[in-house]
Amino acid sequence: MSEGQQRPNTVEYFLQDIEHHGRNERTAAAYERVLTDYEQFLAERFDKTPPAASYRDCMAWVHELRSTHSDSTIATYASYLNRFYSYLERVGHTDENPMTVVLEEMNESIESNPTRRDVTLPEMRSFVGEIHHPLHEAIVLTLLKTGIRAGELCNLDLIDVNLEHEARTWQPRAHISGRSDSLFIATEHTYGQESGGERRNASNKRKRETVIPIDSELKDVLVRWLAVRPDVASNSATPAASEPLFVGTASSWGERLTPNIVHHVVEQYARAYGWYRTGGGAAENVTPHYFRHFFTTHLRDRTGDRGIVQYLRGDVASDVIDTYTHNWGDRVRETYLEHIYTLRR
């Protein structure tokens, strides 16, 4: 059974099942939202469908939730997933419910806010210094200097980048046409849905559009990448300007990167550096999501301005939306360029 056929036989059939058991429309909508997000997480992170997920995959999902949700919300979502897997087990789509052990461990030993590895700026500079492949360097530097998610990086198109350099041969989108050296993070890309003329392999999870400055260090890395970037493998009539910024240079030559590839790139360097261990959790392993944590912690400490960091991360905060959206040039860009850390020597 293909991945495209899998969802109707699992998530949608399960939703029909709970509806038949008298669950109201609001409850069904909550189940659908959580299970769709979980399904997307598995596809992006592990290239798996729910019936193929293991206990460790479910644990990874729970760890991911801790960065954005409260303990009570995580417990609710875990109960949804537990009921879903109980259904799959009952109808023969899986041999066992992987959430059984997860729920037991959540009650016994899982920390609600795990302490992450404490990486200093000099240590991160040393780590970055070991990366010489133009694509890999561009991936890691972009994640570390913008705080965007792996999926958001994969969704970047050429038109989302405005570089004041001869390497830019395209017209950037209107949102950043007057903002030199800037990166635009959209909100419309959704996993499995068409956007910009192609079906996306990741979602942009932020709630509002964000314009992130590009400093001279990141600019140099992006220019270096653009100089060797392969021609895009395309079977559509998508305009050249809408081509992906980051494409594969190995087996997926010329194809848009996937979150799975990004995680693999980061993992191979982190493992070689002693920052990643099979079976290690969020408190130990350095991953693309860790880079988001590093960006948040270090930039917040340097600026002392939590609002600007919230804006750059794309977090929901009604008191900062208008302030930073309309004052991008005077406040966000100046503050960012003054305080963003350097990572290459």
Score class of each variant (00 low, 15 high):
residue 312 L to T: 08
residue 27 T to F: 04
residue 218 L to F: 11
residue 307 G to H: 09
residue 256 R to E: 03
residue 45 R to Q: 12
residue 69 H to A: 15
residue 95 D to F: 10
residue 308 I to G: 02
residue 222 L to Q: 07
residue 271 R to S: 13
residue 328 W to F: 10
residue 302 R to N: 11
residue 33 R to P: 11
residue 343 L to R: 00
residue 126 S to V: 06
residue 284 E to D: 14
residue 20 H to L: 02
residue 12 E to I: 04
residue 61 W to M: 08
residue 179 R to L: 07
residue 71 D to A: 14
residue 205 K to F: 07
residue 258 T to V: 03
residue 343 L to V: 01
residue 17 D to T: 01
residue 273 Y to E: 09
residue 39 E to R: 00
residue 241 A to F: 00
residue 103 L to R: 09
residue 236 S to P: 00
residue 202 A to D: 13
residue 263 H to V: 10
residue 165 H to P: 06
residue 308 I to K: 12
residue 125 R to N: 08
residue 257 L to I: 09
residue 160 D to H: 00
residue 212 I to L: 07
residue 49 T to E: 09
residue 311 Y to E: 11
residue 265 V to C: 12
residue 287 T to K: 00
residue 128 V to I: 15
residue 294 F to K: 03
residue 138 A to L: 04
residue 187 T to V: 12
residue 286 V to S: 03
residue 229 R to M: 08
residue 98 P to N: 09
residue 108 E to F: 14
residue 142 T to G: 08
residue 228 V to S: 12
residue 163 L to C: 04
residue 53 A to F: 13
residue 313 R to T: 11
residue 188 E to H: 04
residue 50 P to W: 01
residue 272 A to N: 07
residue 337 L to H: 09
residue 141 L to C: 10
residue 53 A to C: 11
residue 201 N to S: 12
residue 116 R to L: 15
residue 73 T to K: 15
residue 249 T to W: 02
residue 310 Q to H: 11
residue 198 E to I: 14
residue 335 T to N: 07
residue 183 L to P: 01
residue 51 P to G: 13
residue 265 V to S: 04
residue 263 H to C: 02
residue 243 E to F: 05
residue 135 L to D: 07
residue 340 I to T: 04
residue 180 S to R: 10
residue 266 V to Q: 00
residue 248 G to C: 13
residue 179 R to A: 12
residue 142 T to F: 09
residue 119 V to L: 15
residue 279 G to L: 05
residue 295 F to H: 08
residue 162 N to D: 12
residue 106 M to A: 08
residue 68 T to R: 15
residue 171 Q to D: 07
residue 124 M to R: 02
residue 234 S to G: 00
residue 42 L to Y: 02
residue 54 S to P: 10
residue 59 M to T: 10
residue 95 D to K: 13
residue 8 P to R: 02
residue 321 I to V: 14
residue 29 A to F: 13
residue 152 E to L: 09
residue 331 R to V: 07
residue 253 W to T: 06
residue 215 D to Y: 02
residue 147 G to Q: 10
residue 197 G to I: 12
residue 141 L to I: 04
residue 54 S to Y: 12
residue 216 S to L: 05
residue 282 A to Y: 01
residue 288 P to D: 09
residue 42 L to A: 07
residue 283 A to V: 13
residue 185 I to L: 10
residue 271 R to I: 13
residue 296 T to P: 06
residue 34 V to D: 14
residue 239 P to G: 11
residue 241 A to V: 04
